[in-house]
Write a protein that binds this DNA or RNA. Structure first.
Lengths: 178, 178
DNA sequence: AGTTGCAATGCAACTCGTTGCATAGTATCT
DNA sequence: AGATACTATGCAACGAGTTGCATTGCAACT
């Protein structure tokens, strides 16, 4: 599994509470990996037991209790081990593809709004990535920044790909509408 | 869930046994959705109970028993219903992205072989898609073929994207090696 | 006659991930 | 004073997906 490792990376970038991590998974980190707070809390507990992370409880004076997690030496070693471990590229699993192939056996026209919606969503994300790109990655970049930028660039590349593909697919579906 | 619907589409394209489906999920269908035989058998049973598919048992004279499934009217209606149902675009979840960001806290060089391996795998798939493209989609296409082609084109587009991105990322990692 | 391999199906146990709910304190608005 | 919303954590139950193993029968090789 890799949520473990995604959390390790995230905690190395900045020690945080589960709640904070969950919020970051709704934004920056979420652009390359997503998770719910449930999962995050459970994985954090598991990793604490395995001594990959350590929690410092900050008793709540002005706010509810908060456990700030940071990565231990063991956790850091585990990350390094995992980095070098080979993995296979993941298989594609996209609902739109199934639907498109399924359109041959149903009402192809009913897919048009769906595709338009996806096109809009991808355009949205692309804009969002572009904003981040200009805001955070336009000057000189240290190693960490450069790596983060490379990750962002995959997002940009793929959203562009999606946009173009949605256009194409919409063209095809519309050509059936005669 | 959509393995259900992926199977419906697949069975509409050609009625098959679970085993056959599993094999097709290792090739053509697997290019846009993958599954193990376990999952397939379980989903088929469930769908049979829901009367989305019907099985015709072909008692084995020369081979072990075989259940050939085909889609019922109910199943077909369910597919149409699902086609029109809106869904959100899926979030990205790619291990390479996590690893790349993690490389800031470990040995970045150890990622190079991994990236080279992914590049090779994507190049491989791209070649494979190109072969299919020439073989199956070069003449005039009926509606079904055109839709299948559109799905294949997304595969081609994304593998190309991956290739270019792997090159870029490798360049970056190598620039750290000085 | 025995081993290997493939076609075909399936059970059981497990991990991963989602959903719904519960709690409890703090802050802010009306 | 009460309603609403946000911070912060967690349990319990479920559903999706993987892994390992088991079975049966045929075919082909050795």
């Amino acid at each position: 599994m890799s949520l473990d490792h995604a959390l390790l990376v995230s905690l190395l970038e900045k020690p945080s509470s589960g709640y904070e991590l969950a919020r970051r998974f709704d934004r920056s980190i979420g652009y390359f990996w997503h998770a719910t707070h449930q999962q995050i809390y459970r994985v954090l507990s598991r990793m604490e037991e395995a001594d990959w992370v350590a929690a410092e409880v900050q008793a709540g004076e002005t706010a509810p209790d908060r456990k700030e997690y940071s990565v231990t030496a063991t956790g850091s070693a585990e990350l390094s081990r995992w980095l070098a471990e080979p993995t296979e590229p993941e298989g594609v699993r996209d609902i739109l593809m199934v639907k498109l192939r399924g359109a041959a056996f149903g009402d192809a026209g009913s897919l048009i709004p769906e595709l338009e919606h996806h096109r809009a969503a991808h355009a949205n994300r692309l804009t969002c990535y572009r904003v981040i790109e200009t805001r955070d990655f336009s000057g000189a970049l240290d190693r960490q920044r450069a790596l983060q930028y490379q990750v962002l660039k995959s997002g940009i590349r793929f959203e562009q790909g999606w946009l173009e593909w949605c256009e194409e697919a919409l063209g095809l579906l519309r050509s059936f509408e005669q």
